[in-house]
Amino acid sequence: MAGKIKSMIDSIIEQRAKDNVMLQGVIRTKLMLKGIDPKKYTHQSDDDPAIISKLEALVKDFK
């Protein structure tokens, strides 16, 4: 399977920042400091279970 990481990242940014461009940038920075670079993932990226589990943990707090 592929593309789940990109979808999760997009969903986190969309839910948390909505249309606020400044907040979108801050959330991308927070993700990068956690070792997840949003630019690296596309809809074709492999579903790396380690990254998915990191993102699942984040989703709980980020909402």
Binding site: R16, K30, L33, L58, D61, F62
Partner: peptide, 13 residues
């Protein structure tokens, strides 16, 4: 420190 500031960043803008 990163543990604390990361958690803060997760919970607030």
């Amino acid at each position: 420190e990163e543990r604390v500031i990361d958690k803060i960043g997760d919970l607030t803008d």
